[in-house]
Amino acid sequence: MSTTVAPALSFVECRRGFWRLLPLSLFVAAFGAAFGLAAVQTGLQPVEIVLMSATVFAGTAQFAALDLWGAQVPLVPLLVTTLAINARMLLMGATLYPWLALVPPRRRYASLITLSDANWAMALNDLQSGRNTLGALVGGGLAIWLTWLAGTLAGMVFGGLIADPRAFGVDMVLGCFMLSMALAGRRTLRTVAAWIAGGLAAWAALHWLPANTHVVAGGLAGGLVGALWLERGQ
């Protein structure tokens, strides 16, 4: 919001984003392997599994699809579930709007093709702290997409041979990463109030609302705090 210059989207920036997010993509590979194995066990054809990971590229939604998979699949419930689980991406995309609005439409939307939790968080952190680049979003997105696909393939081929990723703490990578991104940003009383509102709303949604609505509930609650409590001189 502090800039009127379009964020950089050069090859060098994307390459840097790729290498910054590649080590974190370990958890994506582990998650992808779990999906590949589960998809084989559900009875999907290899080409279908690879196509799903490559084009849908959304882990939780893909696991939910496996739950509904059989000789017949109810298409509308499946798409509604996909929409509900991925609705958090609407919020994530919206938070990038102030910067993406400065980018020509074709590049703006192309840079969102691999939008997911980790590359969104890193890109937003970059932009908010004055590093005016989309390298983490695009390059980092490519890193996550590739490891997601590689993980899926590994799970299909090697299945149960993969060692328990929990032993290496891989299940906590996303949590630790998201926490570090939250704490890396600028903290004011106002942002902390938004966190608390968002955290409580997410907690309440986990208890009382349908599954996978907690991110949207938390985001909207935090957004309301931000809209009602404006920073002075903003």
Binding site: Q128, W195, G199, G222, G223, V225
Partner: peptide
Amino acid sequence: EGFINGMAGSVLIAVLV
């Protein structure tokens, strides 16, 4: 803008909860 800013941090927290 306030809404977007408030939403940004709380989405991170909501993923964490």
